[in-house]
Nucleic acid binder design. Structure first.
Lengths: 171, 171
DNA sequence: GCACGATGTTTCGCATACGAAATATTCGAC
DNA sequence: GTCGAATATTTCGTATGCGAAACATCGTGC
């Protein structure tokens, strides 16, 4: 699934930094490529990318509420409702109202869904993960450390005036 | 714009490697977060994420064919047609048939679009880029080197049997 | 000049994707 | 017990996003 590129595509930046652009480009590349591969793999089984993800999740967890499912695939409930609708229509999954809490719906694989899940042997992420596994221990350690830094930075700068169109301060 | 997570969300992997999962998670996090921020920024100006990207691109390049526009934002032509349709409806952009090659459509900002572009001062990627700028030179160099490795690996493993799982029996 | 493949754009049908509002149910305060 | 806030899910409207097919135009070979 190809995606509109995030603002990285915008060329007019305060200070042109080819390395940074290159890194951003790579992140986008890896992300979009992994989705494209998932989609291609899924289509061999008559599924869409998200549907494949859902099937493999349900194969592992047996039973998930719609909320926890949407949390796991990082989508809104309303989005997942649609995905499950279509999968239910295809007879791949079942919806069961929880008896304990009648607000909750448990999603599970049907017979057909289970069979299909078993047929799909290759983990969709294999290529991407393979790339990471191929790194040396040192590289892996460095990458993890830097990624954590990035994440920490972004996390702390989000709640703030990040979206207030305020001019940048230090650099 | 939140996205269905790529297959990284699938827990059953051949060899559980928490560092690798963590790295994948972070890449996804950075990507989705950058899109969320763009979207939030855009909505302050009555735009969607992709529309903001298009406006800033057109502010820089003045004049882009629909094809080159879709190339830059990494989307299909058919997707961009829709985006431009809606922006034209809002009076933000103009479509002009090229006289040199009458197949080509040049997209450009209207007066209104130019004014809006000027109002949006902050580069949407600033937070994400800011995180990268905050890294030490050594970190940046390491990250760039590793990212290139990853990209090279993925690139060379894509054309191959990457997508050759067991064939499904048609529906 | 004219057939014809290549190229640029749009159209169509479908599947995400989101946020806001509607609906159903639970749980706590009282 | 009952009201009201909180939680889980669905519904609705709109905007991407894709691939295949339709359409228009270009360029080449002849």
């Amino acid at each position: 699934m190809r995606n509109i590129v995030p603002p990285s595509a915008l060329p007019p930046d305060p200070e042109p930094r080819p390395e940074i652009d290159s890194i951003v480009e790579t992140i986008i590349y890896l992300y979009t490529e992994s989705r494209r591969l998932t989609k291609g793999l899924a289509s061999q089984f008559g599924l869409t990318g998200p549907q494949l993800t859902v099937i493999k999740l349900l194969e592992t967890f047996e039973n998930l509420s719609l909320s926890s499912l949407s949390e796991r695939i990082r989508a809104q409930n309303s989005t997942v409702t649609g995905i499950i609708d279509r999968m239910e229509r295809e007879g791949l999954v079942r919806r069961d109202r929880s008896t304990a809490d009648r607000r909750v719906v448990h999603i599970s694989l049907s017979e057909k869904g289970q069979k299909l899940a078993k047929q799909i042997q290759v983990e969709p992420m294999e290529i991407f993960r393979g790339a990471l596994v191929g790194l040396s221990h040192a590289d892996l350690r460095d990458l993890l450390r830097i990624m954590n830094k990035l994440q920490r930075y972004v996390r702390t700068h989000i709640a703030d005036g990040a979206m207030d169109a305020a001019p940048p301060e230090d650099t």
